[in-house]
């Protein structure tokens, strides 16, 4: 029941956001509201087992949801800008030293791994290639392996990021 309700609310919110300003009942026209409720019920009936697969409702807490935009606009934006300047420098000069390294994350939930893998892909000259499903370690392709890392078997995730402590933020949000 709870997965159904959460999926319904999420779909309805997205629909209302997309059709805002269509009429005079608050912001929406009555037809849009009825269509939104019917379509969200349908979507929730079909997709309830996909959204809440682990039956773990920690993310429904509004406080955690407020943290996500803060994280995206603060440390994440900073790291993305820095990473883009770094890759721009490497495109122009052609100085690369690629390699695949193993990164120990220590995260336990699926959502945490998902957010860390996406943050790694978009930030510091690195792309997540594969994930060890049991130990939740990441295999990361690094465009410029720092000297000495090719001998290490596992790098701690904190060392990948130069400015902000991204893994600590993800732990705060997802665990």
């Amino acid at each position: 029941m709870i997965p159904f309700l959460l999926t319904f609310l999420l779909a309805l919110l997205l629909y209302l956001l997309l059709t805002a300003g269509s009429g005079n009942l608050l912001l929406w026209s009555p037809q849009e509201l009825v269509a939104g409720v019917v379509l969200s019920l349908l979507a929730a009936a079909v997709a309830k087992n996909f959204l809440c697969r682990s039956h773990n409702f920690r993310m429904a807490n509004p406080l955690r949801l407020i943290l996500i935009p803060l994280y995206l606009l603060g440390p994440f934006l900073l790291e993305v800008t820095l990473a883009n300047l770094d890759v721009a420098y490497r495109v122009i000069t052609g100085k690369i030293r690629p390699g695949i390294i193993r990164v120990q994350s220590g995260l336990k939930t699926d959502l945490g791994i998902f957010m860390l893998a996406n943050s790694i892909t978009l930030t510091p000259g690195t792309i997540t290639v594969d994930i060890d499903e049991e130990s939740h370690d990441l295999y990361v392709h690094n465009i410029n392996v720092p000297a000495g890392w090719e001998a290490e078997t596992g790098v701690i995730d904190r060392e990948l990021f130069s400015l902000a402590d991204i893994p600590a933020w993800i732990r705060r949000i997802a665990e």
């Binding site: 390699g99 695949i100 290639v129 594969d130 078997t153």
Partner: peptide, 26 residues
Amino acid sequence: AVGSHAIARGAHRSGLKPAPAVVDRL
């Protein structure tokens, strides 16, 4: 982000090695 992760995983599974590479733990 998710799409590029998927392509990288598929490429490595299809046997494509990173050609100039100092290390390949995977």
